[in-house]
């Protein structure tokens, strides 16, 4: 689906969403009443210092002014790879966007991410992976690491990597692999109106605590993470 189709299907009751230089910002009317803040990255834009700061500003400005949930639409490249961005401290700008989203989610502004195109690496961490619920749309193509780069570093052939990818979701690109990890909470259908699926999710939002490790265990994608987290937590709590 294109961004325009997605927005039309999510918000049939109207919206004020602007697109400027690959950055999405605005708000939309919810069918059940109230409004939803909308931000995002589109057209496979790389997330650099300028884009990240505009997105965090939009969220921060709404904190004192509005109520309601926050939507993050994602079709990005990875972080912008440039001398200028690193010189200016890209890690701080990306972290700041994630921090603002996490803080909002913890303080009454539940966050939902929709991954509808590409995303990778630092851009995914600062946007979709910083929301409480990350939804995938069919056709989305996240790639933490692309296979040609992996082939270069691991000195394995593409054929060998593709063969390994069939038996494990842990390293290969793709929406279903990230779903098995617990990173993508659910994949919506593009055959039904998105507004129905959004309203159903908003009516039944999971609790605010991070349960992605448990999801990854239940789906068989991450066999050890949830248990290790719990064991360390128990051991550390004993020092009180």
């Amino acid at each position: 689906m294109t961004l325009d189709e997605i927005i039309a299907s999510l918000f049939p009751d109207g919206h004020q969403i602007r697109k400027d230089g690959g950055v999405i910002a605005g708000s939309a009317k919810l069918r059940a009443g109230g409004r939803m803040l909308v931000i995002g990255v589109t057209d496979r834009t790389a997330l650099g210092v300028d884009e990240a700061l505009r997105l965090s500003r939009h969220v921060l400005e709404s904190i004192d002014r509005d109520t309601g949930p926050i939507l993050v639409l994602v079709d990005s490249d990875s972080q912008r790879m440039s001398k200028r961005d690193e010189l200016l401290g890209l890690n701080e700008f990306l972290a700041h966007l994630a921090k603002v989203l996490i803080h909002a989610d913890m303080h009454g502004r539940p966050t939902i991410g929709i991954l509808y195109g590409h995303s990778a690496a630092g851009a995914l961490l600062a946007t979709g992976l910083a929301t409480r619920v990350l939804v995938g749309l069919p056709g989305a193509s996240p790639a933490v690491m692309d296979l040609p780069s992996m082939a270069k570093v691991t000195k394995l052939s593409m054929e060998a990597l593709e063969e390994k990818a069939e038996s494990t979701p842990v390293f290969a690109p793709g929406l279903s692999n990230l779903e098995q990890m617990g990173a993508i909470h659910m994949i919506w259908s593009d055959a039904a109106p998105l507004v129905d699926q959004l309203e159903a999710l908003l009516a039944d939002m999971p609790a605010v605590n991070d349960r992605r490790d448990a999801l990854g265990k239940a789906r068989g994608g991450r066999p050890k993470a949830a248990d290790i987290v719990e064991r360390v937590r128990d051991l550390a709590l004993q020092i009180r």
Partner: peptide, 11 residues
């Protein structure tokens, strides 16, 4: 992120 378990590491 550790390349060989990139998805688990990213998450």
């Amino acid at each position: 992120v550790r390349l060989q378990e990139a998805n688990a590491g990213e998450l």
